[in-house]
């Protein structure tokens, strides 16, 4: 069993992401997961701007985050993203969010994406070519 390929994304904490405690508000980690996810998918040839032409559409069915340490304004953030599960109609991304300077793990989580028909909004099987690509990424 090989390890899944890991994609790395970086960003700096924006002031707008912080709250009255001086730390990043908890909902923003789902946005950071999205940064990691979109970069990951771009790296494997999935262009969101061409989503309709590629006929691939999915929605987030579940999202989970466990918080370990706080991030503050202007902190350099590293998001590690990988595929942890590929099923018939859904696939799961896993994430680690770290402080890039200290290496401290700030948060970890998962999101489950369900493939859907862009017209009917009903779940459909993952298109075979895309699914093969995901499996290869999960188990290179």
């Amino acid at each position: 069993m090989t390890s899944p390929r890991v994609s790395e994304s970086t960003l700096r904490v924006r002031f707008a992401e912080t709250d009255a405690q001086g730390i990043v508000y908890y909902a923003n980690y789902f946005v950071w997961f999205e940064v990691g996810r979109v970069n990951y998918l771009r790296e494997i040839g999935f262009d969101f701007r061409e989503r309709e032409r590629q006929g691939i559409s999915f929605v987030i069915a579940e999202a989970h985050c466990r918080y370990h340490a706080s991030a503050r304004f202007d902190d350099p953030i590293l998001i590690r993203t990988w595929i942890s599960q590929v099923r018939q109609r859904s696939f799961t991304f896993a994430y680690h969010v770290l402080n890039q300077d200290t290496g401290t793990l700030l948060a970890e989580g998962e999101t489950v994406q369900v493939m859907m028909d862009p017209k009917t909004f009903k779940p459909i099987p993952i298109p075979e070519e895309f699914r093969r690509k995901l499996l290869l990424e999960q188990n290179p």
Binding site: Y26, Y29, V59, A61, E62, A63, H64, R66, Y67
Partner: peptide, 15 residues
């Protein structure tokens, strides 16, 4: 007394 979030889980059923 502060109660920061240590875990968040959401399951989405409908838009």
């Amino acid at each position: 007394v502060l109660l920061p979030v240590s875990e968040l889980y959401v399951r989405f059923s409908h838009s």
